[in-house]
Nucleic acid binder design. Sequence first.
DNA 1: AAGCTAGACAACCGCGTTCCG
DNA 2: TCGGAACGCGGTTGTCTAGCT
Length: 420
Amino acid sequence: MVRPPACCGNANLRRGLWTPEEDAKILAYVSKHGTGNWTSIPKKAGLRRCGKSCRLRWNNYLRPDLNHESFTQQEEEMIVRLHAAIGSRWSIIAQQLPGRTDNDVKNHWNTKLRKKLSEMGIDPVTHKPFSQILADYGNINGGLSRPSAASAAATRSSIGSLSRDLKNVAHLFVSNNNNNNHPDQHQQHNYSSLPPQSSITAAAHFMEQPEEILPITTECFVGNKGEGGGEEESMDLMDQLQAIKLVTEAAAAAAAAGGETNYYNDDEGMAAVGGSPFPSSSSSSSTCSTAAAAAAEMKKSATTTTTATTPPLSFSWRDFLLEDDDAGGGAQFPLENDGDLNVNNGEFSSSGEKQSLAAAAGEGGLSRGVVGGSNSGSADGSGGGYANMSSFVEAILNEDERRDVFLDFPNLLQDPTYYH
DNA sequence: AAGCTAGACAACCGCGTTCCG
DNA sequence: TCGGAACGCGGTTGTCTAGCT
């Protein structure tokens, strides 16, 4: 019998939403001692919370590098594409979105993106058009092709998802069920190209242009696994990891050749992202690029500039795969080595807006998401009350600690073992 | 104005993995 | 090598708020 963690089942421990006072305590403690043993932190910080709850609060909300702004279109596109490529690996997806947590991404997916895809006629599980799923299901039932266990499982999943989402677009299939074997169905679909969706407009759009709503599949990583048969198999985990590894190696080679990769591309939306990372002109099925091409494209995108609305943070597939959250004694911040630890589009970089931790805590400046605080974003529109947190960041990471982090990180990058 | 509902998101739960003695 | 503790992750639930009736 497994004994529950010490924090569980203790009636003396608080649960539920955090108060500003609790936030202040944990902030004060972490700013002084850093994150270490979360089990011991609540006791040392004077909190009646379990360590797990403290860690969650810190990681999901209090961390000063978090971006509490609304998701941008680029971020949404990235989430969709990465989800299409690797599924619900929220932590990995979140790593590609500076300032976002896995919880953020997951919530945003569940509340908005999944529905949006459904309204667009796309199954959010498989990222295939509903019509294609129905066709696949029909093929299976008709014995036209004997599905593998994997594809059968995928189909079951699709059907399950379909049953949930079909109501949004049920009227699509009355006349569209035979219109799914489009020869060019691997054409890259630009999700963002669709107009703001209501289910009706989405349905109309889909019916008019069914070929435009196309899956972004993992085949872009490893080739055309389901090519030819209209029977795209879902990749198992090992396939996905292998695919990611291939891209990683290629990206590392590109990085070694010079240049840092930035995954925001001004002209082409997201460029260097898994799934369908490339401009539509080169992303038909047959051109779902090789890892080498991916690396080349990443390198190309690295030369582009970022827009004013996108975080100026660099990206590489090494980060994607190798980043270690615990690097540097709990210093879990983007490694902007400008000495000011600027993050989130400069949100924390304004030295003129420095605000002491004590002030922030005492004045309820960290009230978003806690009892009594607003739950709808920042009061001043500058980042949920975190625009002045540079002093807090600096308090956590003094100069020496930051230097240590930066020195440590390359070692982490050289350890190509972190796959989750 | 009150009640209801849906959306958003914070927090919890359980399980698998990693770390460490 | 093993066992327990700690951590990380994904799924799920709970709570608050805004909008609608």
